[in-house]
């Protein structure tokens, strides 16, 4: 799943380790999230959204046309 995690992190000048510490996960997990190799669980997705003060949908893009079409304007 595409996401803008790396951009959001860079805006705050955080390292992956900094972000990992704030989310309570390992740096490996942050790296996997940013490269799209791993999709977070719902609690972790909410934690990320809360940390960056964004909606989950604003950070994560499911890349599926069906889901994108159903997304409210």
């Amino acid at each position: 799943m595409k996401n803008s995690l790396r951009v959001l992190r860079a805006e705050r000048d955080w390292s992956q380790a900094d972000l990992a510490e704030r989310l309570g996960v390992s740096r490996q997990t942050v790296n996997a999230l940013e490269t799209g190799k791993y999709d977070p669980s719902l609690p972790l997705a909410f934690k990320i959204a809360h940390l960056f003060d964004r909606l989950i949908e604003d950070i994560f893009d499911p890349e599926e046309p069906e889901v994108a079409r159903r997304r409210p304007a």
């Binding site: 790396r6 951009v7 992190r9 860079a10 000048d13 390292s15 992956q16 380790a17 900094d18 990992a20 740096r27 490996q28 790296n31 940013e34 490269t35």
Partner: peptide, 21 residues
């Protein structure tokens, strides 16, 4: 825009800033 930290296997070849010596 400041450079974004590379991943553990990033192209820069440098270890990520998060990995301490």
């Amino acid at each position: 825009m400041k450079s974004i930290e590379t991943t553990a296997s990033g192209a820069s070849g440098l270890p990520p800033r998060g990995a301490r010596a």
